[in-house]
Design a protein around this nucleic acid. Structure first.
Length: 729
DNA sequence: CGCTCGCCGTTTTTT
DNA sequence: ACGGCGAGCG
């Protein structure tokens, strides 16, 4: 359905002239006043403030379709989403709206995919060639680690991931290595980052490679540096639409400005977002982009979408109650016509396993009521929480769908195979070279590799080209030399196949069988078989893409897709519970939602305790709450297995204490509102003080009038509310 | 010089 | 429980 850039592919239609009025009417029917306003806004900047569940995707897709109906050629519309999944979903919906009426393809993709496409077309201008490699985080980390060592730093004292974060953050603020240094560098970490940054830039150029940040950054530089290129794209895109605008970072912001700011005529930038759902500050997103949109574009039309079509009232009130603790920036008032609905169920369980059992029981209850598992989702703050659920679901035979845990294209065996293909496309890619050379082990170790790469650099020749004659080139001998020759000959074989028109699937199959990777996996028993199965799946994916395309699939295109997408949805989505992180939950909705692990240290996360961090954590929690349509469970455990240790000091999240009392119920206690069970009406997660024991946190209720409190000295005490005289803090 | 086995610190979130 | 890393072997 989508090409290498993640763009929508539709059967071409020659004419869109026969637009009927009736069809436009149909496009607008079923939209409320505000939605309709946003869809038909003719020209100029448009800010759509879309509360959770207010139909923002609907507005975006309908606007896109509407523009096409108005005669805007689809391929002159740029629509940006944040994830591939969102792009795919939007493409499908636009397709459904327009049917065959679409003549040409809109650019409908993520920022990264769109930039990759622009960069391919203009690679030479930034010192790359069109066949550049895209390094994922792992590739880039490997490179950074090498450079860190070469610069004489000890990776144990200064972790390469910290350096990577630092460099990435700088790039997201539009700084290159030189600018980063001249901003002032303090302390060992920043000093190391500055040193590595400069070498990293250079190494990427030498490898004809870019990392994720570069994809955007290079395009910004391209547009800023070459007037005619900027002019080209500025004129090309008559309309630019951006989803999740609250999550854009300074680079993305600059990019958008470059495309629309000085456009002759109207600046047709339509952005959709919700500041209350901004959850990507950690990767450089700046919520000010949405807060200050009107300052940047004073002529902007502003539309607020405040009617929620997703959740029943009590769920919405719970969400509103929690988010109210944040400094509010853009006032929105969400309301729903779906009726009061059920209260929010808050449940404390003895431990993580009991929590999982609780979820299973409630799922079964739901099934008994005629619900389906595909309507249910379990959300958690960190992936590590998924394990207990996976195990229990497996044991109890509940089918589940794990979203985004270990991504397919990040699996070791898949990356191994892909590194061969990457090297085929871009022989300069030394991360790919090192990886392919060592998979499987060929008797070539660290020392040989380093020496060969030094020689290659000296000679300005790709290392893989030197590997064929190791004795001549560098006086290598013995096992390392044999290994190098073996690798070079395999590489030559693959290059020959490719030149002869072999398909991607055939190339993959050859890599697996001729490299010895397949054999090695076969020898590994059950786990190896599983990995081999993944490689089979990779072949199947290539075939499938080829079939969709109805012709040969260029290897470059396949590789780009693997670099920028998390891979196809896991099979078995039908009739399965969804397990995913809160971050991944954005953009989805489910009739039945469990948010598990609602504990201090998890949500809010232990590493997010600054004031700004806390607000972001709260927004993340808010995002989770607002996914629920009909029934919502929030669970926490008193004890949890973490980092190979059982922890007994888990506390309910403070966010639970922020839920309005009257919408909450503990399912084991029955009565609506924790308040009903409690004279004085305390809530789980709330901070209290006791005359004797001091300050503590309400952990749960044993039964009516009996409360459990974790005091700050670590003691968990069960108290009678009548006698304990707790004060709220 | 490379490889394999046992130990340690470890993980927040994603394109 | 998992990946990276060092030690000790081939």
């Amino acid at each position: 359905m989508a090409d290498a850039d993640g763009n929508l592919i539709l059967p071409a239609m020659e004419s869109i002239l026969s637009t009927g009025l009736a069809e436009v009417e149909q496009l607008l029917s079923g939209l409320n006043e505000a939605q309709r306003e946003a869809v038909v806004h003719p020209e100029g900047p448009l800010l759509i403030l879309a509360g959770a569940g207010s139909g923002k995707t609907r507005v975006l897709t309908h606007r896109l379709a509407y523009l096409v109906h108005q005669g805007v050629p689809p391929d002159r519309i740029l629509a940006i989403t944040f994830t591939n999944r969102a792009a795919r979903e939007m493409a499908e919906r636009v397709e459904r709206l327009l049917g065959e009426r679409l003549g040409g393809l809109p650019w409908l993709s993520t920022f990264h995919a769109a930039c990759a496409r622009i960069l391919r077309a203009n690679a030479e201008r930034v010192g790359l060639t069109a066949n550049f490699s895209i390094y994922d985080q792992q590739d880039s980390r490997r490179l950074i680690k090498n450079l860190l060592e070469e610069e004489g730093y000890d990776p144990k004292r200064i972790s390469e991931s910290r350096i990577q974060q630092e460099i990435s953050a700088a790039k997201n603020r539009l700084l290159d290595a030189a600018a980063y240094r001249s901003q002032g560098v303090e302390g060992e970490l920043e000093e190391a980052a500055a040193a590595v940054f400069a070498r990293y830039e250079q190494a990427l150029l030498e490898a004809n490679a870019v990392d994720f940040d570069d994809l955007l950054l290079h395009v910004v530089r391209l547009l800023e540096g070459a007037e005619e290129v900027r002019d080209h794209y500025m004129r090309r895109f008559l309309h630019v639409l951006v989803d999740e605008y609250q999550d854009t970072n300074p680079v993305q912001y600059r990019l958008l400005r470059l495309l629309v700011k000085d456009r002759p005529g109207s600046r047709n930038l339509a952005v959709v977002g919700d500041d209350a759902q901004s959850i990507y500050r950690f990767r450089g997103a700046d919520v000010r982009n949405i807060l200050e949109f009107q300052r940047d574009f004073p002529e902007a039309k502003v539309v607020k979408l405040e009617q929620n079509y997703r959740s029943t009232q009590l769920i919405l009130e719970a969400a509103n109650g929690v988010i109210a603790s944040n400094r509010r920036s853009l006032e929105k008032r969400l309301w729903s016509e779906l009726g009061e609905g059920e209260p929010v169920y808050v449940s404390g369980l003895p431990d993580d396993l009991a929590e999982a059992y609780f979820v299973v029981e409630e799922l079964e209850r739901y099934l008994g009521e005629g619900g389906r598992l595909s309507q249910a989702a379990v959300f958690y703050r960190t992936h590590s929480l998924s394990r207990v659920f996976e195990e229990l679901f497996n044991r109890t035979g509940i089918p589940y769908r794990l979203v985004g845990a270990l991504r397919f294209f990040e699996r070791a065996e898949v990356k191994d195979v892909l590194s061969y293909l990457r090297l085929l496309v871009n022989p300069w890619d030394h991360v790919a070279f090192a990886r392919a050379l060592g998979a499987p082990r060929r008797g070539v170790g660290e020392a040989t590799l380093a020496r060969l790469q030094a020689i290659a650099r000296e000679r300005s020749q790709p290392a893989v080209e030197l590997a064929g004659e190791p004795e001549v080139v560098g006086g290598f001998a013995g096992k390392p030399a044999r290994g190098l020759r073996e690798f070079a000959s395999l590489y030559g074989h693959l290059a020959g196949l490719r030149a002869g028109g072999a398909t991607v699937a055939e190339l993959i199959e050859t890599v697996v069988s001729a490299s010895g990777l397949g054999e090695a996996l076969e020898a590994e028993g059950v786990e190896g078989a599983e990995r081999l199965e993944n490689l089979g799946q990779l072949v199947a994916m290539a075939r499938e893409r080829e079939r969709e395309l109805g012709g040969p699939l260029p290897l470059e295109e396949f590789l780009q897709q693997t670099a920028l997408s998390e891979g196809e949805e896991e099979p078995g989505a039908e009739g399965a519970v969804t397990l995913t992180t809160l971050h991944n939950a954005k953009g989805s909705e489910f009739p039945l939602v469990f948010i598990v692990g609602c504990e201090e240290g998890l949500i809010p996360h232990i590493n997010s305790q600054g004031e700004e961090d806390l607000e972001e954590e709260r927004r993340l929690f808010y995002v989770g709450l607002t996914r629920a349509m009909r029934r919502l469970y929030l669970t926490y455990a008193y004890s949890r297995y973490r980092f190979g240790r059982r922890r007994y000091d888990q506390l309910p999240s403070r966010f639970l204490g922020e839920l309005p009392r009257e919408v909450v119920v503990d399912p084991r206690l029955g009565g609506v509102g924790a308040g009903a069970a409690v004279p004085g009406s305390f809530a789980v997660g709330e901070r209290v003080a006791h005359d004797l024991f001091g300050a503590g946190t309400i952990c749960g209720f044993e039964r009516e009038g009996v409360v459990k409190v974790r005091f700050d000295d670590g003691a968990l005490r069960t108290l009678l509310l009548e006698h304990a005289k707790l004060r709220r803090l």
